[in-house]
Every structure is written in structure tokens, then in C-alpha cells.
């Protein structure tokens, strides 16, 4: 039942993108997303799309995996398009029944759809080419400056990686408890909302108790192995920038400069 859900959608293969330092990928993704909101003409989107396409090709991840992420936001995408299409005031283009599509509406709808799609695909590239582990490592080190502002960066990263380890275990446990309660005649599937919520009690109580017990055990095990926070810890796999990472940063910079410069020109066609 629940066993099939896998967390993180890492796609195992060999590529330059896979080998990049996670900090590069995190920063790159963030900058790429921000850049999408700067464009004023279609040329900008063209540049962004070509850049994205190039990265996808380099990553060796089949394109259909990239689009998979789209399915989750399809509804949101359609909603945005529909709202923008019909609810933007302006010069009427087509009028059907009480609904009017305006020129401005069409324009914003298309822009929003393109932005959203590239945003999703762009972040998929990151999650598909970086193990969750690597990602937390990258965040821990990349966000280290925030420590100056008393943000517990190490603790947050540690929590994330523990969560990643225990989510599959708790999923399996949920499955087991569910089956056991079904064997005792529990019914999780019929009845109205209130009845269904009530039916969850026999599942949630044991699950929480188990999670607390595990947390307690784990805390003890970590202390027994000399864990005492991030200070004075070394890393088995320290993150070190290599030349490919510097080149990648350069590429991102070139893209940003080119995209934002060309993408903000007043082009007559875009009107």
C-alpha cells in the first residue's frame, strides 16, 4: 500500500551535473528561478529554455522524468492559466458567452504558464541529480553564514537527514499498523469525513508512540556515539569546490547576464 511511495526522486546515473557540488546546484536553481521573473520579452524565456534544455541534456536524465514533476502542479498550472485568461481586463480578443479573453489576459496566462513550468522543471533537475543527503550537506555548508544570525543551520540539516532516513521506516510501520487494525475489523475507507477522521485514531496513536520511542532510542544512540552538535565535527565527505564547479558558476553568471540584459530589452514583437 504505502510502501510504494519513495521520497526524493533522485535518478541514478553518471553525468557532469550529478558530480557538481550541491551548493552550485542549489545556488544555480535559485538564481534560475529568480531570473524567470526578470524577463520582459520572449527572448528572455527563449534563453532560459535553451539554458535549461542544455543542462537537462548534460544531466543524462531522460526528459520524461523532468516532466513527471509537472503532473503534481498541473492543476495549479491550469488554474493560473484559466484565471489569468478570463479575469484580466483589457482589449477584448474573443468573447464566448459571458467570458472574454483579452489580449493582456492571454499574454499573462502564457507568461505565467511558461514561468511555472520552467520553475518546476528547473527544480526537478536539481532533485533528480542530487541525492537528498548531498542536498542537506550542501544546504548546511551553503547556509553556514546564516549561523551569524543564530540560525541553527547544522541542527536543521541534521533534522532533515534524520527525517529522510526515518520516513520510509515510518511509512512501512503505518502500513503494518493499518493492516493489523484492519485485521481487528477497523474500517479506514467508508463513512463520512468525521467517521473517517475518527477511524484514524487506532492508526495515529500507535504511530505516534512508535515515533517517540524511536526518537528516544535514536537520541540515546547518537549520544553514545559522541554526538554533541555541529561544533568540532569533521566531515567524512567534505564539500570542496573543484574546477568544474567554478566553470559551472561561470556558466550561470554568463546566463544571468545574457538573459537579463537581452530579456529586458523593449522588443516590438513581444507587445
Amino acid at each position: 500500500m504505502l510502501r510504494d511511495i519513495t521520497l526524493g526522486q533522485y535518478y541514478q546515473t553518471e553525468s557532469v551535473i550529478h558530480r557538481l557540488d550541491p551548493r552550485v546546484k542549489l545556488a544555480g536553481t535559485l538564481l534560475f528561478i529568480i531570473s524567470l521573473f526578470f524577463f520582459r520579452n520572449f527572448l528572455g524565456y527563449m534563453i532560459a529554455a535553451s539554458f535549461l534544455f542544455l543542462v537537462i541534456r548534460l544531466s543524462h536524465v531522460p526528459f520524461r522524468f523532468m516532466v513527471k514533476g509537472m503532473r503534481a502542479v498541473l492543476f495549479l498550472l491550469l488554474l493560473t492559466v484559466v484565471f489569468n485568461l478570463f479575469l484580466t481586463p483589457g482589449e477584448a480578443l474573443v468573447s464566448v458567452w459571458k467570458l472574454t479573453i483579452t489580449k493582456e489576459g492571454l499574454r499573462t496566462a502564457v507568461t505565467m504558464a511558461v514561468r511555472l513550468a520552467m520553475l518546476v522543471v528547473g527544480s526537478s533537475v536539481m532533485t533528480l541529480t542530487t541525492t537528498p543527503n548531498n542536498l542537506t550537506d550542501g544546504m548546511e555548508k551553503g547556509l553556514r553564514p546564516l549561523k551569524l544570525f543564530r540560525v541553527p543551520v547544522h541542527e536543521v540539516a541534521m533534522m532533515m537527514s534524520i527525517a529522510l532516513r526515518f520516513i520510509p521506516i515510518l511509512m512501512e510501520e503505518t502500513d503494518k499498523i493499518m493492516k493489523a487494525q484492519i485485521a481487528r475489523g477497523a474500517d479506514f475507507e467508508s463513512g463520512n469525513l468525521i467517521r473517517r477522521a475518527k477511524a484514524l485514531v487506532p492508526l495515529m496513536v500507535p504511530l505516534f508512540i512508535s515515533a517517540f520511542r524511536r526518537a528516544n532510542d535514536l537520541a540515546m544512540a547518537m549520544e553514545a556515539r559522541c554526538y554533541r552538535g555541529g561544533d568540532g565535527r569533521t566531515k567524512m565527505k567534505p564539500l570542496i569546490y573543484r574546477s568544474r564547479d567554478r566553470i559551472a558558476y561561470l556558466c550561470i553568471l554568463v546566463y544571468l547576464v545574457a538573459g537579463i540584459w537581452l530579456g529586458r530589452l523593449e522588443l516590438p514583437v513581444a507587445g
Binding site: 485485521a183 481487528r184 487506532p202 500507535p206 508512540i209 512508535s210
Partner: peptide, 25 residues
């Protein structure tokens, strides 16, 4: 069917109420 580690499925406030869960269903 009694699963492995069945005590992990106990959830009611007292033993008696918990045992009532099955027949009540």
C-alpha cells in the same frame, strides 16, 4: 490474525476498552 509485536497496535485508554475494539467493529 495477530501480527508480530501486536502490542504496538494498542491505542485505547485502558486494556478493556482496547480489547473491545475488535468485537465493536
Amino acid at each position: 490474525l495477530v501480527f508480530q509485536y501486536p502490542e504496538h497496535q494498542l491505542f485505547e485508554i485502558d486494556v478493556f476498552t482496547d480489547v473491545c475494539f475488535g468485537p465493536k467493529n
